[in-house]
Amino acid sequence: MLAVKDLRARYGPIEALQGTSLEVREGELVGLVGHNGVGKSTTLKAIAGVLRPSGGTIEWLGAPLRGGAAATIRAGIAYVPEDRRIFAGLTVEENLRLGATTRTDADAVAADIERELERFPPLRKLLTRRAGNLSGGEQQMLAISRALLSRPRLLLLDEPTLGLAPIIIDTLFETIARLRDEGVTVLLVEQNVAKTVRIADRLYVMAPGGRIERSGPAAELERSPEFRAGYLSLAPAHERKAVTP
């Protein structure tokens, strides 16, 4: 579905991505993990159209991905940035409706909003509340729902669990896994490797400069000793501890 080949991107004189390649197949939940600052967010930004790459190609559904963020949404890719960026001054409902900006089928939008409220029940009674007054977890739910309102085929999630309480983190991971079960393809950037590896189908491990250090089916990686040593604790497979590197 999505094929990124040899992507390059710069922030001024700094080469953040020096040739990143990965792919996401339909129906998968692909995890992109790595230490801080290696280029995971930058990769998502380039795919989402926020950032202009300086080299390489991004192919979506067989054709090169062109245009800015709005075109990317219309093409079926939704992006939930780091720090959520919900509109604090608008209500929850207004935020949700904004997610459907590029859609033209007004009636279906109402049905979709209803579906999101089922997915995240706490949002129902917050519909008319000012989004800035929501808790971190609620804002994250809102951000994801807003992205889903554009009926995307691919969802890009940038560190959704950052700054959230452990209980909420667990629920969130479950919800993301369920999204994949419902048929939404997901590319998930996370620092919480242990939990990511449990819900993902495949995993990419990124190193500084955006290089993919290793990749493969999540189950395989989870069992591999070097992977566990580098990214999980040294405990044997049957004694996994959630460790954030």
Partner: peptide, 9 residues
């Protein structure tokens, strides 16, 4: 920026 990201013209 976020508004344009969502497709607001």
């Amino acid at each position: 920026e976020m508004a344009s990201l969502l497709g607001v013209k």
